[in-house]
Simulated scan of single mutants.
Amino acid sequence: MAPPGSRRWAYVRVMAGTILGGVLGFYVMHRVETSYKARPPDLALPLCPAPSPLPRGLTPRFSLLQARMEERLRRYEAHMLAKAKEAQQLQDEAQREDKAQLLPDL
């Protein structure tokens, strides 16, 4: 059996290693996340069109991602318009049924 003093130092080493390992792991993951995140384009774009097909500071990959996002947005807007039309039709149908129930049959 180990003497009580060495057991205490073992606990201190374990706790210190856990804390330092957590701090180091957090720092490393933070650096990895910031290095792989997509960076936003420059907000100060030139007023006149650039001679290249892409604005300054944008990469072809960014323009592809932007095109995909715009396509998704168009599909989402079309989907939402279709849902709104369907909801309006259902509401109109319900109103017609309510009016038909109120009117007596002749």
Rank of each mutant, 00 (worst) to 15 (best):
R7G: 01
Q95S: 02
R7V: 14
S52G: 11
C48H: 10
R96W: 01
P41F: 05
L81K: 15
L54H: 05
V14P: 00
R72K: 14
R56P: 15
Y36E: 15
A10M: 09
A50Q: 12
L90C: 04
M69W: 08
G21P: 01
E77R: 14
G17N: 06
V28S: 07
G5F: 03
M69V: 04
F62N: 01
A84S: 09
E71S: 10
G5P: 01
R39L: 15
A87L: 10
L24Y: 09
L24I: 08
L73V: 07
G17F: 02
C48L: 11
V14R: 09
R7Q: 09
M15P: 00
I19E: 05
M29L: 15
F62H: 11
H30R: 13
R8T: 09
A87E: 10
Q88S: 06
G17W: 03
A2H: 07
G22S: 13
K99H: 04
W9F: 12
A50R: 01
G5Y: 04
P53S: 05
P40G: 05
A82L: 07
A10P: 00
L47I: 08
M29F: 13
M29V: 14
L54R: 07
K37M: 14
G25M: 10
M29K: 09
D98V: 01
D92V: 05
E71Q: 12
R74L: 09
R39E: 14
A87R: 10
V28H: 06
A87T: 06
A100E: 03
I19Y: 06
Y27S: 10
P46G: 06
L24H: 06
E86D: 14
S6K: 07
A78I: 00
K83V: 07
E70D: 13
K37G: 00
A94T: 00
P49G: 08
P4E: 02
Y27M: 12
L45K: 06
